[in-house]
Design a protein around this nucleic acid. Structure first.
Lengths: 241, 241
DNA sequence: AAGTGGTCTAGACCACCGA
DNA sequence: CGGTGGTCTAGACCACTTC
């Protein structure tokens, strides 16, 4: 027997990769249940234990959800998901907040050089640009522009768009796309004229500028957003583990 | 046999908890190797597979490190650990940075009400206060005060302290304490007189104020630090998964 | 009661490390 | 080479959900 010293991959890795590709391909849609462990193990010709390891790792990576006594389902991004809560903003006095969005405009525009770079697409390609402000406890604290790649998201009829409070739910429900990871950068800036007007701050009032790039499970960039935040009563909070 | 319906805990959870307590107690010090799987399984009277599950979970939680062919060791916090890198600051042009610390003062002081609260200790208790600035690429960008709880850290001779670039390595090497998790909050502020002097900025130049509380494996607060950062050339960057 | 995932075992073999 | 962790199997039993 020939030993493959270099390209050895465990069985459970191969199974895992195949199951993941079927989730990405949409063979099993978010919320639907997979066959049970023994059936799947049979399909792949491995033991239950090996298949189980693949499923457990995919569960740890948030692709699947397992319910004892019921079955294994493809994960759904919830409106109040712990993965992507409403930013990481919280009140300085630790009280609970109730976020609200107010859309200012939705336009289909051509990508500038900077935005094209952020979305990893070509300059002048079509993108969706959403301007909105976000309120926390009746106070306007976020002035935000969201740039959405139409390459991956497919054709959308702008006039028919209903934007919910979280865009992530929209991507999943209307486009079948799951946001899987994101990168954020934060810096301190002074407000521009638009910020001063919308957030009602003075010209020397410091703001946080938070730029987020969001990716789907296949690592495509889905959206890029720049949020300018009045951190007078709210702050960005994060746990490092 | 009596069925414990309510308080059922799997064997591997019990084993895991016991091993963790022995790590925290210092039975096995950071860097030392545990007995092999079969020996440990025998000690606990469980099968190798069950013990293995306990070890693997502790490895996932960064308490242990496993080396195929060598053994299982208690994790060590490295100077350049990915767990606690030098903040999450990076240059806006994405180039690599080389951080340097300049200590301004080290004093033993009494905790104010605010600091006592942050350290979860009593007002007026003894704490160590370190003022320092941090340079990135020869530029002074961080003005920082670190408050260290002496309750947990034990007695330290202030005059003999050698502070390395990262305090975390100091805690581990000198005090045997591992920082296991932390919480950070970020807000935008304007500089005070001290910031203006040390960071060389104008009075309307916005800064990021980053407050971090660090915990050891037993959830004791080890330190609280407030860092004021000039985000002109550097920004806070984080990956969300 | 039937079906699911969760735990646990015992044993086999493989890949990796260091002497 | 022996010892370690890593993978894989087959089978047993338990806990939870649903009918």
């Amino acid at each position: 027997m020939i030993k493959k010293k270099i390209a050895y991959t465990p069985l459970y890795e191969q199974v895992k990769k195949d199951i993941l590709s079927r989730i990405i391909a949409g063979d099993w849609t978010p919320g639907s249940f997979l066959p049970n462990e023994f059936a799947l193990a049979d399909q792949y010709g491995v033991s239950q234990g090996t298949l189980r390891k693949a499923l457990n790792e995919l569960t740890a990576e948030k692709y699947l959800v397992r319910y004892q006594g019921k079955g294994t389902a493809v994960a759904v991004v919830e409106e109040d998901s712990s993965l992507f809560p409403f930013f990481f903003l919280c009140r300085k006095d630790e009280k609970h907040i109730s976020p609200v969005s107010q859309i200012q405009s939705i336009e289909k525009v051509k990508a500038s050089k900077k935005i094209a770079l952020a979305l990893k697409s070509k300059e002048n390609c079509d993108i969706l640009q959403i301007r909105r402000v976000r309120l926390l406890d009746q106070e306007t604290v976020i002035n935000e522009i969201v740039y959405i790649s139409l390459e991956v998201l497919g054709k959308i009829d702008i006039d028919e768009i209903e934007i919910p409070n979280t865009l992530y739910a929209f991507y999943q429900d209307k486009c079948g796309i799951r946001i899987h990871k994101a990168t954020e950068t934060i810096e301190a800036i002074l407000p521009d004229a638009d910020d001063i007007k919308k957030l009602g701050v003075t010209k020397n009032h410091p703001l946080m500028k938070i730029c987020r790039t969001s990716f789907d499970v296949a690592d495509n960039v889905i959206e890029y957003r720049e949020s300018k935040v009045n951190s007078e009563h709210f702050m960005y909070k994060i746990d490092l583990k």
